[in-house]
Amino acid sequence: MIAHIVCAITLVVLYILQTAVFSWTTLISGTADLILLFFAAWSLQEGVHNSWLWAAIAGVFVSIISAMPFYAPLIAYLGVVGISKLLQRRIWRTPIIAMFIVTILGTFFQQIVYVLTLQISGAPISWGQSFDAVVLPSVLLNLIFALPIYAIANDLAGRISPLEVET
């Protein structure tokens, strides 16, 4: 129960930070995605079992508020959790490296989903320009913020786990 409350509060705070601050901080046209980074970091934590559920909730929540097609953020966040869970089983001894790999792969996956969905909905977006102006700068910005978000997620998971055991 505590894990769900923490996830809900953290996601609301991150969403507010994202729209109010980080979406204005652009590198060329790319921006960091704190929610994606949180799911990447949260899914890598041992003893965390609610990441699929909250990725789906966040995906729906962001889809409602965002101008993106409804299913795009949902697919993106679920995909990031999937990549994270796959890597967690393989690189479980070095979580920091796993975090960086999930950040790179997850960001590429998310942006490809976004470009595809926007192209399907009729937006005149080219792959070349998308990679140059948005995808690569976003990967770089996400890598910069990956460590702080991982530290926060790790700390939260560390504080929640003993409480969950006690209760």
Partner: peptide, 14 residues
């Protein structure tokens, strides 16, 4: 203006 679209592909404000 209280925010900006979360996706970098879109130019929207809130």
């Amino acid at each position: 203006v209280i925010g900006r679209e979360i996706s970098p592909f879109l130019q929207y404000i809130i």
